[in-house]
């Protein structure tokens, strides 16, 4: 299918939520709305699942009270995106949100086969929504990729990209912007 020829129908977040309410999409559908497209998520293997559990535990330990970590729950990112990042750090407690949170301080994706999607596609979407910090736990390269400073970038998928990329190895440490006094060993995040 030559891409110039086919224009896929784009969904808004409001329509997407309606698809869920009316039962077209159920809990068994592994779908995320990304830039208007209903994207099918890859099945999760065991290292992926382990990395999520480790990330959850590690972040909860590192963060001061006043934050909580959500696991694979929807983010109201923009009018045509409702991703479910592997981890999202949001302010307040779970009861503070009657709608999906839209402004996490940190989003984390664990990537093996999805690395290209997480870097190019989601990275640009998160940057466009001005997420201040985005991590990829890269199971292929066994590193943590830390993205910061969203900025305009005409070459990126959605016109935005992160200006700063730190690639941290297992023996290095990371300090989330939301927890300036924390020093998290990258090894704690790798499964």
């Amino acid at each position: 299918m030559s891409e110039s020829a086919v224009r896929p129908r784009r969904w808004t977040r409001v329509e997407y939520d309606k698809l869920i309410e009316t039962g077209f999409l159920g809990p068994g559908d592994k779908i995320e709305l990304l830039g208007g497209q209903l994207c099918v998520s890859e099945p999760q293997n065991n290292p992926h699942a382990r990395a999520i559990s480790l990330g959850l535990e590690t972040l909860q330990r590192a963060l001061a009270p006043g934050w909580h970590v959500r696991v694979q729950l929807p983010i109201a990112l923009d009018t045509e995106s409702e991703p479910e990042p592997d981890l999202a750090v949001v302010s307040g407690g779970p009861r503070d949100y009657t709608d999906h949170p839209s402004r996490p301080a940190l989003v984390v994706e664990v990537a093996d086969s999805s690395l290209a999607l997480d870097r190019e596609h989601k990275g640009s979407l998160y940057a466009r929504a001005r997420m201040p910090e985005y991590w990829i736990v890269n199971l292929v390269g066994w590193v943590l990729e830390v993205y910061r400073e969203p900025g305009l970038d005409a070459g990126a998928q959605y016109g935005w990209a992160y200006r700063v990329l730190l690639t941290l190895r297992a023996d290095e440490q990371v300090t989330p912007l939301a927890a300036p006094s924390a020093r998290i060993p990258v090894a704690d995040l790798l499964p």
Binding site: L25, V40, S114
Partner: peptide
């Protein structure tokens, strides 16, 4: 959009 990276719902 690199097509290999994205699988949309059919």
């Amino acid at each position: 959009m690199s097509e290999s990276a994205i699988r949309t719902r059919r």
